[in-house]
Design a protein around this nucleic acid. Structure first.
Length: 274
DNA sequence: CATTACCTGCAA
DNA sequence: TTGCAGGTAATG
């Protein structure tokens, strides 16, 4: 689920609610395989009494900066949810981690499919995480020229290239398909085949789609919730995702589902070429 | 590049 | 019952 817009929404929601509060205790950790580093035992010893200094996003990671040198990194993968519980919220069988704060708030990590992961990183760990990912597509430093360089260095098709987190950070299946429709580009186009105009359209599409999706607080298909446990609304303006068989908004041709690089891919077969 | 694995729930 | 789902890592 959560791609860049969803994680960004949660980060902003949490920043407004839990900074600068202190973690008092771990109320529940019932699926300790979600803790990748350090060991669950060390994790439980280190976390209490740390103050949440900032909340931010890098790629699809939610980062809670604690007392130096620690940063709590959370990845929601497919079905994870993280929100600040209301006083009467009751955790269920899928609520795997609960942190209590000195503000009497509780942070819930809920994950039906158990793919979500948690790391407690020091400065080196955070630096390593950072270098594993490509540029942030909404940063000022991400320009058409940067995108052009990324495309020129790859023999791959657009779809798998844009999904590769080490090339561009934060795009997932929904937002790649949506961006490629907006850019009039076919997902199977070789990255090196793009003209300068194609690249400009792709750049603009990626930035516009992500910005709009954040403004809508992300897309709720089934699992995703904001940091306030509410739904996002960008799914209401999808152009191709979840629109198989429905008419393309530009040309009326039915939207198709193809399998490209082993991922379900939605596209308009008429207007997505170049 | 494709396949499998990690998990659960839901729709066909 | 089978296939599919927003993600990613580990294998051939």
């Amino acid at each position: 689920m959560p791609e860049l817009p969803e994680v960004e929404t949660i980060a902003r929601d949490l920043a407004r609610q839990i900074v600068p509060h202190r973690i008092t205790c771990i109320e529940r950790l019932q699926w300790d395989r979600m803790i990748e580093t350090p060991t669950p035992q060390e994790f439980c010893q280190l976390l209490p009494n740390q103050t949440i200094q900032t909340v931010r996003r890098r790629a699809k990671w939610l980062l809670l900066d604690l007392d130096p040198p620690w940063t709590l990194a959370l990845h929601l993968r497919m079905s994870g949810r993280i929100w600040v519980a209301k006083p009467d919220d009751i955790p269920d069988t899928h609520t795997h981690l609960i942190l209590q704060l000195d503000s009497q708030q509780r942070l819930f990590f809920h994950d039906v499919r158990k793919f979500g992961r948690v790391r407690l990183l020091d400065h080196n760990g955070l630096a390593a995480l950072n270098t594993a990912y490509g540029p942030e597509p909404l940063a000022d430093t991400f320009t058409p020229a940067v995108l052009a360089t990324t495309l020129a260095r790859s023999a791959r098709r657009l779809k798998p290239l844009l999904l590769d987190q080490s090339r561009v950070a934060g795009l997932g299946n929904i937002y790649v398909d949506e961006s490629l429709w907006h850019a009039h580009l076919h997902p199977a186009r070789p990255a090196t085949s793009l003209t300068s105009d194609d690249i400009d359209r792709l750049y603009l599409a990626i930035r516009t789609v992500l910005t709009d999706a954040i403004a809508h607080q992300g897309s709720t298909l089934r699992d995703y919730r904001t940091g306030y446990n509410t739904v996002g609304t960008y799914q209401h303006v999808f152009t191709v995702y979840q629109r198989e068989g429905l008419p393309c908004f530009r040309c009326g041709t039915p939207i198709e589902r193809h399998l490209i690089a082993q991922r379900g891919t939605r596209l308009c077969p008429h207007c997505q070429h170049g």
